[in-house]
Write a protein that binds this DNA or RNA. Structure first.
Lengths: 225, 225
DNA sequence: CACTCGGAGTTAGAACATATAACGAAGGCA
DNA sequence: TGCCTTCGTTATATGTTCTAACTCCGAGTG
């Protein structure tokens, strides 16, 4: 998104642009390394610059501020998760809830701090930029597809929440699915996140049971319920 | 816990000790203010000192480091939640799952950053000190009590996870409850946390539905089995 | 009462961070 | 060839945590 000319048709990147994109990528790679090992709050532009053999302020040619870099990392993380969801749906010939759940779990465990960068503690007044909410909506869209084709359980009680959702479904952005499907997608999200969040944050660490089995049990319950 | 003599019987606190405890409390009060408005990562000992009319290093008489202060805040947060749980159980003449759920939600929404200090993003290698895991076990104990007296749903499928829990129940610390109760307690925790975590982190912000109703729906589902 | 001694607060300073400003060098392009 | 954008530099202001050394007051003891 930083290498193309603005004139509609994609110009072949000039050597300068290629170099710039490469440096940007190296900065982000090292930033991911720092985040993975010490957390996002410990991310230091200065340290990255030294690692790259540059001197401090040089990085400000590429990112206007530390916050801007972090925002772009958040965007990339969302993008990666959305791509993984799309790939899963593509491979299975349509979104499958169980497959998505395992994609999500693998993605979270592959880099816990990356998951927490998205779903962990935000700055109090944080408002995600539109580009990021768009990607989040993309992810939700795949999830809605998966929940729409889930086998239907007729004896499920009609939750009062469904009526509320029928009137508050802006977030589904025109997805053709009934309120019960919306409900299932939300619950799919919150339940799996509940397990994953506590797992990657280490809250199950000293408890002795296998988080994977708890995740699987919750997934079974979602698919059956 | 920082004001008593060590000689068994509680000595009346000397004026020095009283003053010290009072300053400690004021530091923590201002720290909570900073955390609530700017997040834990923005907590600054220097800023607190200035607010109190002190000069920077003075605070190191009271807390050995910034991390030590934060650790104590985490401990106090856990302590507060545990006390709220105990109070709820006391008031209802025994732990009640629905009451606990609402206590938890009110406690989380009263200060989202306090909730996230406990359940949000930790430092990667973070290992909670024993004092804190003990309080967490206390909380889990009340939750187990509540789940043990929940009306039993006979047609619930015997989850494979229950068998695993029967062999991995160290975390229940001798609580007299069967594996299904342990399972319910865990699920109670992860599901409510899943909703609350996303709510306090603002992920439902632009979506338009009422998080309270989602929380209530999940709680209903938990109580119905 | 006088004295000591420990705790509280101070300033100074090292080491690190973000971020801006001003300057020099090196590359692409007409 | 010459311009001009971009990159990287150093210098600097301001912020942070945290240590060290010094002062001072007050409480408990002889």
């Amino acid at each position: 998104m930083a290498a193309e000319g603005e004139s509609g048709v994609a110009q072949p990147p000039s050597p300068r642009e290629r170099y710039r994109a490469q440096v940007c990528d190296e900065i982000k790679d090292r930033a991911w390394g720092q985040i993975a090992t010490a957390g996002a709050s410990a991310l230091s532009l200065n340290a990255i610059a030294k690692q790259m053999g540059l001197s401090g302020p040089a990085l400000y040619r590429y990112f206007g501020s530390r916050d801007e870099l972090i925002t772009e990392m958040i965007r990339d993380a969302y993008r990666g998760l959305a791509d993984a969801f799309h790939a899963s749906a593509e491979a299975a010939g349509g979104a499958d809830a169980a497959a998505l759940a395992h994609v999500l779990r693998r993605w979270a465990l592959a880099d816990p701090q990356r998951y927490l960068l998205i779903y962990g503690t935000p700055v109090p007044g944080y408002r995600a930029p539109d580009e990021i909410t768009a990607i989040a909506a993309e992810i939700m869209d795949v999830l809605l597809d998966a929940c729409a084709v889930l086998p239907w359980n007729a004896d499920a009680p009609a939750a009062a929440f469904d009526a509320h959702l029928a009137d508050h479904r802006d977030w589904a952005r025109g997805h053709r699915a009934g309120a019960p499907v919306l409900h299932r997608a939300l619950v799919f999200w919150t339940r799996l996140h509940g397990v994953l969040s506590l797992e990657v944050a280490g809250h199950f660490a000293g408890m002795g049971f296998d988080p994977e089995l708890l995740f699987a049990a919750e997934l079974d319950d979602l698919l059956a319920g």
